[in-house]
């Protein structure tokens, strides 16, 4: 059912303990779209993703996933429902080999199913085949992001939430990651929520977007609109006017 809301956030207030970070967030993400979250450093982008995955404290409001209220659900239960969260750092086990990382990704699957899934993702990410016995920490930054993506794919989630997947990558590696994100949507019909520091790059591939400023939504609408909004772009996103 493309077009229908897969994620819906209503009147959300959240933070860490008594540090209130997000204020009155309302948004909805449609199935199959790339939904972009941009904003200055410290505006609460990561906090919003973490909140969607159940890693922060929610003071009020609710989060719906496919119509189910998941506001109070623990992270592993959300993972089971089909949410994948790829944090900025620590999204692979750097001391484990690539093969072991893939095994861990399908920890709860039957071993026959897991083997099949691992074969599938190795077809999608062929470079991993030569690196199965290498420790993840020996991969380049871009390769690590792709490994994290492969790990998420093994669990066949419905929605991928990326936190700055291109941060610190060389332009070529960043482009490869972006291409993969586009591929996820185009070939597999997955929904993507993308947090990016590189606003231009994200808004160019995004369908809709929000701009977060100090934990509040300052803009909500088409990604292309935000990209062409000279005033907001100059003030908050470092885009040339």
């Amino acid at each position: 059912m493309p077009g229908e809301d897969i994620v819906r956030v209503e009147g959300l207030n959240a933070g860490y303990g008594r540090f209130h970070i997000l204020f009155d967030i309302d948004l909805d993400v449609s199935r199959g779209e790339i939904f972009v979250i941009v904003g200055p450093n410290g505006s609460g982008k990561s906090t919003l993703l973490k909140t969607l995955f159940g890693l922060t404290k929610v003071y009020s409001g609710r989060i719906l996933f496919e119509g189910h209220d998941i506001t109070r659900m623990p992270p592993h239960a959300r993972a089971k429902m089909g949410l994948a969260y790829l944090p900025q750092v620590g999204n692979v086990f750097s001391e484990l080999s690539v093969a072991e990382n893939l095994k861990m990704a399908g920890y709860t699957l039957d071993s026959s199913v897991l083997d099949e899934k691992i074969r599938e993702v190795l077809e999608i990410f062929p470079f991993l085949k030569d690196k199965l016995n290498a420790k993840a920490k020996t991969l380049s930054g871009g390769q690590r992001q792709l490994l994290a993506m492969a790990m998420a794919l093994i669990r066949e989630p419905k929605i991928f939430m990326f936190d700055e997947p291109t941060a610190g990558l060389a332009p070529k590696a960043a482009q490869e990651v972006v291409d993969r994100i586009l591929w996820l949507r185009r070939e597999l019909g997955k929904t993507v929520i993308l947090v990016e520091q590189n606003a231009k790059l994200a808004l160019e591939i995004g369908d809709r977007a929000i701009l977060l400023v100090s934990g509040r939504i300052a803009f909500k609408g088409k990604a292309s609109e935000l990209l062409s909004d000279k005033e907001l772009g100059k003030r908050y996103l470092g885009l040339k006017g």
Partner: peptide
């Protein structure tokens, strides 16, 4: 895996 990153491990089940 748990020794390195218990949060990620628990999320994976």
């Amino acid at each position: 895996a748990t020794i390195e990153n218990p949060d990620l491990a628990s999320v994976l089940g």
